[in-house]
Structure formats: C-alpha cells, structure tokens
Design a protein around this nucleic acid. Structure first.
Length: 370
DNA sequence: AACAAGGGTTTAG
DNA sequence: TCATCTAAACCCTTGTT
C-alpha cells in the first residue's frame, strides 16, 4: 500500500445474540425455546435485568435492559423458556477462540467487546471489495464449522461503515458497502441508525427538522456545533458523510469500575463488605495489568436511578486494595454527609493509570512471586 | 489561553 | 416495588498556570 492511496477495507464481525447463543451451544435442547440471559441483582429472587436473549424471545418483546420480571410476563405463554444467569467467564472462553480465528485473517485487529471486532483487511483485498466479501464468507464459515456459532459481518471503507453494514443485516448477515455506495447506503437511513446517535440526540435532531442521515450530512456545521458542541457537532456531520479516519487498533483501557446493587436502599455508609470486595477486585485488575491509578472515584445510583459520582486525585498513584477502599469510604462518608442521598447501587471507579513500576509503595507481582 | 480536576450526560454492548 | 454492569466520549464549570 502506497502512501498516496489511503483507501482501506475494514471488516466488522459481530457474534449473533452472543451470550444466548453460547447458552444454546452447551444446552442444545433450549434452542427452539426463548432463551434469556439475566443479570440477577440479588435483591429478590427475580430482580435484575435482561442482558441479552435469542431471536425467538426478541420476537415476543424481550430485549436487553428490561426487568427480568417483565420478560417473564412477556413469556408467560412459554413455560419452557430458559432464564439463565450470565456466565461471563464461559462466554469469554468462547470469545477467545473466535478472536484467534479472526487474528489468522489479519494482524490489524481491534476487539471492541467480547462479541465484536474490526479487522483491517486492506492488505488482503488491495481495495477489491469482492475479495472482501469472499473473506467475510470464509470467516463466517470458519466460525460456524469450528465453534458452531453464527455471526454477522459487515465490510466498508472504514470502521463506521463496516459497523453500520453489520447492523443492516442480522443475524447471520454478510453486507458489503463499497466506497461508491456509501452515500446511497447512508443517506436514506433515519438519523437514529447512525452510530453515536441514541434517543436523546435523535430528539435534538428532530427538533431541527433533521430526520435522515442525508439531511444531517448537509446540515450547516455551525448549527450542529450550537446544538451538540464543538467536538460532537462536527463529528456527527463527518459520520453522516460516511467519513471515519479512526485506524483499526486496540485501545488502551483508561478506566476500571465495579458497581453492585445493594440488598437494601440506604442513605448511610453501611456497605463496608461490598466496598471491600469491589476494591479488592479493582486492585487485582490493576496489579494484573501492571498499573496503578492516580484517581479514585465513587459512583452512587439513587433510588430514582440517577447517577451521582465523586472523585479525588491521590497523593501518590496506587494499586493497593486498602488504599482504594479507604479513599472510596472517605468519599462515601462525605457524600452521605452532604444531604439526603438514598442510594440503590454503589460502585468504585479508578483511572489515570501509570505503570506501577514507576510508582512507589504499590503492590506488584514481585510482592507475590519475587 | 491552555490545561487539570471534578461532576453530569449520552451512547454502546 | 421493574429498572445490570462496564467503559468511552463528550459537555460544562471551576480553578490554576
């Protein structure tokens, strides 16, 4: 690839209804029934939310994020429905094997989540999108034969178009948008389909009389800056034009958080055990990654489901569970002292990472094995 | 003016 | 009592250099 030609071929892979499909894989008898993967909060036997579900369940109204109890109502005519607790470790094992398959097709890969990845296959295609389609079919077939899982694939000249192509046909889809078709593909779609536009931004755009992506692409940049700010405004316009220069590469983790739902709502600090556990979890992750954090924050989700947060910068970067726990406890005590704060869920978040070798007084693997 | 810190919002999976 | 969990990007304000 010469430097004059910047045209790329990017392929996006998205495993279909991944968690639920993994569950079907290890228990094939549930395949023809609604399958709902749940995150139980532990408040009551049933409380919690749906993480994901198979397409039969979706056709009956179940979707990600709804209360488990609501999903049960929707499926009350299907007594054989499978409601299963999320088993993240198992899905990650399956995911790792699939990512290995993907890496054999390109070393330029970006894993976006447990079930999604981008591959830059420009070197393989030399700009030929029919070759890209062939590679997409090959990847789908390999994942099906080796892991018995279906996925959807999208191909485009950048990550944005590849991703939107994936979403255009699911499950088991294969969609290729070549550069000359990008405009025809995007223009007629409703703005809500554009990556980065959710319900709130869709409403703002509707207020401006902008309904489809083509209209957004033609909107005066100044008007978008006024509505969305100096970064998001121009960004949305570029996206609507199908422009996305972001390279395919792994991103550094910049933040780690753990949140739990409390057994009972509270307006005082009475969850020392939970706090210790999640502080230890976070500390372990930091040590695993060989990093320490500069900032420690707390998260509180109120009974009205509003998110509140407090944070402070540490005197010295650390990855010690005790120090994270103590810092968080201090923040919580201040938080509850500020006034009436009725909280349902609490969490800890750390960020501002520096290599732990550059810090003094933080635990490292050497403390355990050295 | 440029930057850091802190708090909130929106999006995505 | 219906309402999980993780992470990123952005917006805004305030305060410092």
């Amino acid at each position: 690839m010469t430097f004059a030609n910047k045209s790329r071929t990017v392929l996006a892979v998205d495993l279909d209804y991944f968690y639920a499909q993994c569950e079907e894989l290890r228990e094939p008898r549930i395949k023809d029934k609604p399958v709902v993967v749940c995150v139980y909060s532990g408040r009551t036997v049933e409380s919690g939310a749906v993480s994901t579900c198979n397409y039969l369940a979706r056709s009956l109204g179940v979707k990600s994020g709804i209360p488990i109890a609501l999903a049960k109502k929707m499926l009350s005519n299907y007594p054989n429905s499978a409601f299963l607790p999320m088993d993240k470790n198992y899905y990650e094992e399956v995911s790792e094997r699939i990512m290995t398959i993907l890496r054999s097709h390109s070393s330029l890969i970006e894993q976006v989540s447990v079930d999604e990845a981008y591959l830059d296959i420009s070197e393989n295609t030399k700009g030929d999108f029919s070759t890209a389609k062939f590679i997409g079919a090959q990847i789908k077939s390999e994942i099906l034969v080796r892991e018995r899982l279906t996925c959807s694939v999208g191909v485009g000249p950048n990550k944005l178009i590849a991703k939107m192509a994936v979403d255009a046909k699911k499950p088991d889809g294969l969609t290729v948008i070549e550069p000359s078709n990008v405009k025809y593909f995007l223009d007629p779609l409703p703005v809500g389909k554009l990556l980065g536009i959710g319900p709130k931004n869709e409403q703002k755009l509707e207020k401006l009389g902008i309904k489809n992506i083509g209209e957004l692409a033609n909107t005066d940049e100044a008007a978008l800056i006024k509505e969305f700010g100096k970064h998001l405004g121009p960004h949305l316009k570029r996206f609507a034009q199908g422009i996305d220069e972001e390279p395919v590469h792994e991103k550094e983790v910049e933040q780690i958080s753990r949140i739990v739902t409390l057994k009972c709502d509270t307006s005082t600090f009475n969850f020392a055990d939970d706090l210790r556990r999640i502080s230890e979890d976070i500390s372990n992750k930091l040590i695993e990654r060989g990093t320490a954090c500069k900032t420690v924050g707390i998260i509180a989700i109120t009974t009205e489901l509003k998110t509140k947060s407090r944070a402070k910068t540490l005197d010295n970067p650390s990855n010690s569970a005790k120090l994270i726990e103590d810092s968080a406890r201090g923040l919580f005590e201040t938080f509850f002292g500020e006034g009436p704060n009725d909280v349902r869920r609490i969490g800890v978040k750390v960020g501002g990472f520096v290599a732990s070798s550059e810090t003094r007084g933080s635990a490292s693997l050497m403390d355990f094995f050295g």
